[in-house]
């Protein structure tokens, strides 16, 4: 897969863009209100977009279905049906949390909540299956799997 570049636009949303195999730069701008714009960058003036399509939330779903995301959705829903009651949650370690600097083992999260930390996202990189001696830092995002009660308890623990 091509390298996707992410750029945050304060007050507007997030832009992702990449270079296609034939050398065209294209991108998607996601507005905070869910609107999306598809951007095709100009070859003469690489900062400008020569064509720009604006999509509502519903339009974006239609386009992604057309591009083949429907297969992904099907697979995900099958997984969710197979394991009834299992939920997944992303929890950020806030700057105010005392968990920053502690290891996962220190927190005894699985013992206390039954939920498992399956990955940690740090600076947009995901670290899969962190061990008990993995040190959490503030602004990390913890990806956890468990029952919804367990995840609520985990959230409270991490925010403490």
């Amino acid at each position: 897969m091509a390298q996707v570049r992410e750029t945050k636009l304060p007050g507007v949303g997030v832009r992702h863009d990449f270079t296609t195999e034939d050398g065209t730069d294209i991108g998607v701008l996601v507005h905070r209100d869910g609107r999306r714009e598809i951007l095709v960058y100009d070859t003469g003036d690489p900062d400008a977009c020569s064509s720009l399509v604006s999509l509502s939330a519903a339009d974006s779903r239609t386009v992604s279905e057309l591009l083949g995301a429907s297969q992904v959705t099907e697979v995900v829903s099958v997984v969710q049906q197979n394991i009834e009651g299992l939920a997944i949650e992303w929890i950020e370690i806030a700057a105010t949390s005392s968990r920053g600097g502690e290891t996962i083992g220190d927190g005894q999260y699985r013992t206390k909540t039954g939920a498992s930390i399956v990955a940690v996202i740090r600076d947009d990189q995901s670290i899969p299956a962190p061990g008990p001696d993995f040190e959490l830092l503030t602004n990390d995002v913890v990806v956890a799997v468990g029952t919804s009660e367990g995840l609520t308890m985990l959230r409270d623990l991490i925010h403490a």
């Binding site: 750029t7 945050k8 636009l9 304060p10 007050g11 507007v12 832009r15 991108g27 701008l29 714009e37 951007l39 960058y41 690489p46 900062d47 400008a48 977009c49 720009l52």
Partner: peptide, 28 residues
């Protein structure tokens, strides 16, 4: 004027342009 700048950027369809994050960061 962040009001004028962000409105102009949106009206002229420049939000996706590559120089725009620099402008928005300046406003921040």
């Amino acid at each position: 004027s962040s009001g004028i700048v962000s409105k102009v950027l949106a009206d002229l369809g420049r939000l996706g342009f590559r120089e725009t994050p620099a402008v928005l960061n300046l406003l921040v």
